[in-house]
Simulated scan of single mutants.
Amino acid sequence: MKETASFCKSYLLWFFSLSAILYAYSVGFYNGNNSCSGAEAIVNEVVTKAVKADPSIAAALLRMVYHDCFVRGCDASILLDPSLSNPEPEKNALINLSIRGYEVIDTAKAALERLCPGIVSCADIIALAARDAVGLSGGMAFDMPTGRLDGMISSVQDVSDNLPGTTLSAKEMTQQFAQHGLTQDEMVTLAGAHTIGQAHCDQFTNRLYNFPGSPTGIDPTFHPTYAQHLKSICAVETDSDILVPLDPLSPNVFDNNYFMNGVLGMVLFSSDISLFYDVQTQAMSHLNAQHEELWETKFAKALVHLASLQLIEPGEPGEIRTNCRSRNHEL
């Protein structure tokens, strides 16, 4: 028994030491000695096909990296399916039920496993897919560091306290982002991701019907013509089936229209419009509306920061999953 325990301890020390050598988070990590120099190209090819088939998937992939990294860090815990040993993973949380794009990650992972099995983590695929989603939608190209490990834990109980909803104030969102080490300016900058994507009517009809203190029932910060347009689409306050583009002008183009729309009162969520009225975030939001290239540069930097939250360090429990939906040797 002692010999077996000694062997296991020695093996673990060797394994974690090897992990420390192999997994050094950096740009171009899979190039050179890591035996998968085509990794980023494969992810890009898969995401390109997906976005061409359905432009809205770009926004879904951006949302995925945010929902993954804000809960236990960027460890692909959002991807784990329910299992006998873990019947309630993160993806079962109510706020995560609308997450899309899992099949894009699966396709990229399968292609990578054929090329270089056991090398590319699912967490890196999520991050690279989010970066490519920006570029393929017309946004700025930028580098995304790689070398993440996949996590071993995924629990629905970790989700609610870490993912801010769409009804928070600018102050509350600032506090939420600060808990994850992101600045207020990064929070405002990343909110611009809502320049692409869609929302269900019931996510914003609280601003169209029976808004507190409004004689018309409409949030007075809404552009009146836009509000009437939305009411013609979302005729029932509780309708959850109809989808509305977040940006009515260029819904699939990654540009700074989110901020220009916000100045005019043409954003959907309470959390969005609050950025244009709060004294601490108003100037930042207006600056992003006026200077698109500046915002895109800041967005790339902020997304890289977001995608580096709480990475699993060598020596901590982590792995390279063979299947992104289950841990290796899952029960």
Results as ranks from 00 to 15, higher is better:
residue 184 Q to T: 15
residue 296 E to I: 00
residue 2 K to G: 05
residue 15 F to I: 06
residue 203 Q to H: 15
residue 289 A to H: 00
residue 85 S to L: 03
residue 178 A to V: 06
residue 183 T to I: 06
residue 324 C to F: 11
residue 295 W to R: 06
residue 203 Q to D: 12
residue 221 T to W: 01
residue 21 I to Q: 13
residue 93 A to F: 15
residue 239 D to F: 13
residue 4 T to S: 12
residue 328 N to I: 15
residue 301 K to R: 10
residue 167 T to C: 07
residue 329 H to D: 11
residue 176 Q to R: 06
residue 189 T to C: 15
residue 60 A to T: 09
residue 166 T to L: 13
residue 81 D to E: 04
residue 133 A to F: 11
residue 135 G to S: 14
residue 139 G to C: 00
residue 79 L to N: 03
residue 276 F to M: 08
residue 289 A to P: 00
residue 246 L to E: 03
residue 124 D to V: 05
residue 154 S to F: 00
residue 86 N to A: 03
residue 260 M to D: 01
residue 130 A to H: 06
residue 258 Y to W: 15
residue 283 A to Y: 02
residue 156 V to S: 04
residue 84 L to R: 03
residue 193 A to F: 10
residue 133 A to Q: 05
residue 136 L to V: 10
residue 143 D to T: 00
residue 245 P to E: 02
residue 85 S to M: 09
residue 46 V to C: 12
residue 123 A to C: 04
residue 60 A to N: 13
residue 80 L to A: 00
residue 56 S to H: 09
residue 157 Q to N: 14
residue 130 A to I: 13
residue 58 A to W: 12
residue 271 S to L: 02
residue 66 Y to E: 11
residue 87 P to D: 07
residue 163 L to N: 04
residue 237 E to D: 08
residue 287 L to N: 11
residue 326 S to H: 15
residue 1 M to W: 13
residue 244 V to Y: 07
residue 204 F to L: 10
residue 113 E to A: 06
residue 233 I to R: 10
residue 275 L to Q: 03
residue 37 S to D: 05
residue 211 F to E: 03
